[in-house]
Amino acid sequence: MRTTWTFPKVATIVGAVLLAVLWLVPLLWALDTSLKPEPETTRSPITWLPAAPTMAAYSSVLDQGDLIRWFFNSTVVSVLVTGLTLVVSVLAAFGFSRTRFPGRRVLFGLIIAGILVPPQVLIVPLFQEMTGLGLVDTYWGIVLPQVVAPVMVFVLKKFFDGISRDYEDAARVDGATRWRIVWSVMVPMSRPILVAVGIFTFIGAWNNFLWPFIVTTDPSMMTIPVGLANVQGSYGLRYAQIMASAVLGGLPLLIVYALFQRHVVRGVGDAGIKG
């Protein structure tokens, strides 16, 4: 079938592309600035493409060393948060969806109520608790509070509720225990939604600012977002360097997202809308 190019169709495409360009401009401007020699960034009127692009800003940012350490910390923290959140939430969702024990309804109700609690209002008592536990400036101090995601238990429980019990009955006939059923029946059957919530958890953990900002004071324990919050001060008004560090700080997740975009869009459909 041939597409007929009517005016509304063309106008829609042009509008869509213009909006996309508008959304990309800040990113491209940051990239553009980072490739300029330092004096060119503060020239007025502003210049568009650098006359002689240079990676000088990148090498001086990387030479200062902290950025690589923050990358490492962010990776450790995000991987731990994502892995633990998935395991703990899958188990809890299975427990609430498929097993019966006294107090089950009350506990589930309590967790639903937990969805309403914004972590931001708990920062003060949580920090006191971390001081008491000796977890300030540790990975566990950054990670553990982020693993508590009541909404994840809720979404996964609803999804598990929709999976037919025939599969696990068949597995049970074959002698599978409930633990086996979790890992060999429920998890494979909910792969798309687990991938999607996993990606969002990872993005959330990588980008979380407030909690790591509060619980770390030692620069060597900071994550990317927290560490970068100080670069404006430490680089002074060297905009090429500031933008180079912004580009480096944003790039990993942009790449991850570009690779997984298909899963993200499909998984949101499974998780968000039917919930």
């Binding site: 800040p26 993005i203 990588w206 990317i224 942009l254």
Partner: peptide, 15 residues
Amino acid sequence: LRFSYFAPFVLPATV
């Protein structure tokens, strides 16, 4: 289009 519209969301607040 999907990439352009969603891309900023994956950036940290600081960036």
